[in-house]
Nucleic acid binder design. Structure first.
Lengths: 191, 191
DNA sequence: TCCGTTACCTGTAGACCGGTAGGTTTTGTT
DNA sequence: AACAAAACCTACCGGTCTACAGGTAACGGA
């Protein structure tokens, strides 16, 4: 069964890579990208640092894989999103602090000079703003109830999501992220 | 002139410390706190790394001084702020990307485990939310035009400011931070 | 003028870091 | 059974990091 076995080998290899990426997500959440050592990631999957470098030749290559997984994760349903689903998304995020923490830490680092994730986030935000504007337009048309255009509202929507995440990560007991986000949506539509 | 000379010595020392803090702000803006080496900060003020450690015994002590300066910077006028001054503040920030970048980078790092600035930011946000609620109450009373309370609106106000900063730092040409913030204020009050 | 303090310096310890070189075991193919 | 490739290891290199130890020169007060 040549095809089957070749497949198994490739599948196993990709599973290993996925394991490593998952571990990298954790370590980055705990220490940021600069603070995340390859050795720490490797240890978490039962490898030596050099064993890890067999699967990802450089640290940056590992980061790329981490960012790609994120893309894959939230790229699929964007066109089918609606306003009410955004609130659900925030609620879902509130149950996954590790992931949120990883990408909040990465976003913070990415504004520094020459950070390997900088281009990624720049492009991602351009994309996300456009996507959000589309969602807003589908819901409200060219003019929101408060007179703003979808294009001018989208950056605010994204800013609220990100900003609330930081406040929530720092002090989950004081900030009810999903509720606050629903408040913002109400601000957009119900006047 | 014993008093005068003693004063001069102390003043000169504090000037040196202030120089170092200023340099640290720059380096942190460029590389984050974890990425900022004492040697890089020292070089910027014409010292060796060990010479710098004479003024700040540890790296964390230097960070504390950086954070204290920030406190001093924005703690004074909080009680006298009004809504319209917030927009001016954002405009002012838009002319000082270095400072914004420093504290955006620090905020991002601070959500990671055991980060030396974590407690600072947690407390700061508690304080800032309360302060913003106060400003909102002074402007609108206990109910905003859209029905929300000042306490529930404050986190949104803070989130928008922070979130817009990240988008703006990553892509200043695509995001008009002051305009977007004014849009948000309009969202709060003019319905 | 003497003397203590402040402001630096050189030297170095000790720990991690990412990455390379090259060998060895495991695994799948033929 | 033979072989090739993939997976993973040990050993190591050069670099960087914070911090400590100890010395020196300048300065200001008595």
């Amino acid at each position: 069964m040549p095809y089957g076995d070749a497949m198994n080998a490739r599948v196993r290899s990709e599973e290993r890579r996925a394991e490593i990426v998952r571990a990298a997500l954790e370590v980055i959440a705990e220490r940021g990208y600069r603070g995340a050592s390859l050795a720490a990631v490797a240890e978490r999957v039962g490898l030596t640092q050099q064993g890890l470098l067999h699967h990802f030749p450089t640290k940056d290559a590992l980061l790329v894989a981490v960012l790609q997984e994120r893309d894959q994760w939230d790229a699929l349903p964007t066109t089918r999103w609606r306003m009410d689903l955004l609130a659900s998304l925030v609620e879902y995020n509130a149950m996954r602090p590790a992931i949120i923490q990883t990408f909040s830490a990465l976003l913070g680092e990415s504004v520094t000079e020459g950070h390997p994730a900088r281009a990624y986030f720049t492009e991602r935000y351009t994309r996300v703003r456009a996507s959000m504007a589309e969602v807003l337009r589908a819901q409200y048309g060219d003019r929101l109830p408060n007179g703003l255009t979808p294009e001018r509202t989208a950056p605010l929507l994204v800013a609220v999501m990100d900003g609330l995440q930081y406040q929530w990560l720092l002090d989950p007991e004081s900030v009810d992220m999903p509720e606050a986000f629903r408040d913002f949506l109400r601000l957009l539509g119900e006047d």
